[in-house]
């Protein structure tokens, strides 16, 4: 196939130029460049420690040995990508899921509070937005506070919420879910207020000429036209909800969850553990945002939007 394309130039652009005209080629090149930089960075950052180790053993070393060594340290400053992948395989695939050392177990702990918080936060955000759109006084008095609360580093109170709720006996899932809720209802509210207001005057007037009630206007016009806005907000909300759950796990004394893994790793200098927890969190975030995106496409297509 590839040789055919190379053998017959001119008839259509070669596979290489076709690849690079799209997104796939450039992304692959950038990812490769990042990996190369990562390996180089591992050598650069870990080399001093490795040289020290060699000199302590009082043995002569070659450059090849040094590079080899920097990519296989136990506690490197920057672990090489393959070390992280091996650790991830070990903790995700090889450990039983119920084990406390399984990353799947920790990811599930984080994911469950993320999803609970996301669900509650989305519901709360939608209810608030509906209230703001329909009640004038609420809009005038509450909306400025919702916007200005965006400027407050809410994440900073996450540990306090966890510790304080723990003091009255609420532990585990709920405090983290509360933080996630708190973080993700803002984008949903803002997006939904915009979305519920997005029908233009002409459409609203048409509803009025039909003598539609507020309720009917809401279900037949406002709600459908707000859905694209809702999904855009949901993507932000689900990502920030995960961040909230992770930060919420920081002060719990490192029991379970990806945040606890991060903290434990930083206490004991287990860099490989930190990186594998970080990559797992990143994969989780990407998967959840992707899932919301898929739902969006499905729902909007069912509603007759252009694909």
């Amino acid at each position: 196939m590839t040789t055919d394309a190379l053998a017959a130039p001119g008839s259509r652009p070669g596979w290489l130029s076709r690849l690079f005209a799209g997104r796939g080629g450039p992304i692959a090149v950038v990812v490769l460049a990042i990996l190369t930089l990562w390996y180089a960075g591992a050598v650069y950052l870990n080399a001093p420690g490795m040289i020290d180790a060699f000199e302590r053993e009082k043995r002569a070393w070659s450059t090849a040995e040094l590079i080899e060594g920097t990519w296989s340290q136990d506690r490197p400053l920057l672990p090489a990508p393959h070390q992280v992948l091996v650790e991830m395989k070990k903790t995700i695939l090889d450990k039983p899921i119920t084990s406390k050392r399984s990353l799947v177990f920790h990811a599930w702990v984080t994911l469950s509070s993320t999803l609970l918080g996301f669900a509650i936060g989305t519901g709360l955000g939608i209810v608030l937005a509906v209230g703001i759109v329909h009640v004038r006084t609420l809009e005038k008095s509450l909306m400025p506070w919702i916007i200005s609360s965006q400027t407050i580093p809410i994440l900073a109170i996450a540990p306090m919420v966890v510790v304080v709720l723990g003091a009255i006996g609420l532990r585990g899932l709920v405090p983290k879910a509360i933080i996630s809720t708190y973080l993700c209802f803002f984008p949903v509210t803002i997006g939904m207020v915009k979305g519920l207001r997005s029908p233009d005057l002409l459409q609203m007037d048409l509803m009025r000429t039909y003598n539609a009630s507020r309720w009917q206007t809401f279900w037949k016009l406002r709600w459908p036209s707000s859905l694209p806005f809702l999904f855009t907000s949901l993507k932000v909300a689900v990502a920030i909800s995960l961040v909230g759950a992770i930060v919420g796990e920081l002060p719990t004394g490192a029991q379970a969850g990806l945040g606890a893994r991060l903290l434990a790793g930083s206490y004991y200098g287990q860099t490989i553990q930190i990186w594998s927890a970080l990559l797992t969190a990143a994969a989780l975030a990407a998967a959840m945002v992707g899932l919301v995106g898929l739902t969006e496409r499905f729902v909007l297509r069912r509603m007759g939007a252009r694909p």
Binding site: V29, V30, L77, G265, A281, A282, A285
Partner: peptide, 28 residues
Amino acid sequence: FLKRGLLPLGNLVSALPIVGIAPIMVMW
């Protein structure tokens, strides 16, 4: 070229929990 290669990654990264990088930065 960079626009097609770097921008999708940038969009992806802004959805990631970057705060988690904090322990690594503290170490460095």
